[in-house]
Amino acid sequence: MSVRTTQTGTPAAQFRAVTQTFGDFTAVDAIDLDIPDGKLTTLLGPSGCGKTTSLRMLAGYLTPTSGTITIRGKDSTRTPPEKRNLGMVFQSYALFPHMSVADNVAYGLKLRKVNSAERTRRVTEALELVGLGHLAGSRPKKLSGGQQQRVAVARAIAIRPDLLLLDEPLSNLDARLRLQMRSEIRRIQSETGLSVVLVTHDQDEALEMSDQMVLMKDGRIQQQGAPHEVFAAPANHFVAEFLGYENFIPDGNGAELTVRPEHLVLTPEASPAATTGAVSLTATVLDVAYRGVDVLITVEAATPGGEMVRLLSDTRAAGAPDLRPGDRVSVQAPDAHLVRLPPKS
């Protein structure tokens, strides 16, 4: 497992052997995790992997069954949410419908006994940061989903939280808005310098937004690191598959080699390319799907061990070889893009 985040100073939060069980079900299984200060960390994984449970434990809505959670160096395992000073943005936004936008943002400040002048200043500042200064007097119900989302972010950052926690913040937005909010959240993070933890099941979102990404499955951390590190070197079959490595080639010793579809090179058998990499197979074309920019070609190849595997190649349409189902091809994967995975556990 490669844990190589360039971090300085103490982490904003730490999980140590944190477990959460619900009856017989272990949602989070003894995880150790450091949330770096001033960075954006994503918890990524399929539903039921324990990412939201981890976030809710960090926020204080769930008490771990065992283990400790430290926030800013202080053991906060059993601290109730109201004593943690964290800003949480919920998937449903959870705005107070009976209050104006400004009162929503001011709520946490009133509880902190911030005086009225300072409160107004900070509410305005937070709303301007999310670009909603002009909607201060509106009721949340009158706003669009994207605007409600921004109010939720403004409300969470107005209290100057030790960490900003975002639970699937973009999943209720339409595709275009989602892309826009990704860079928006990044901008807010870098302008405020906040330590952010974002939960998502969308690998593109995690890759684009994270400083550090943490992949989870079945309550365990599968891999963590900077997006480019994890993307280039997935630690196991699950991570590879989750990040879009479609091709898994058994090496005959129980382990696997994997390569992304865009790095699989197909050449008609009549003119085989010079064998350069560890993977060089012959295969039969099963399907050719033209998609405009690129062409997806599915082939069936025989491995050195004699197994048949389906492989997917994603080639730019411009230089794609002219292939039809039934054609024999040679399959090459350059060593630089080939990842060796440990045996599946």
């Binding site: 926020a59 809505y61 000073n85 919920f90 107070f96 409300r155």
Partner: peptide, 13 residues
């Protein structure tokens, strides 16, 4: 939405 109450707790109530 129970998250509304959670939100209030998170903000310090």
């Amino acid at each position: 939405d129970p998250a509304v109450e959670d939100a209030a707790r998170g903000l310090g109530a």
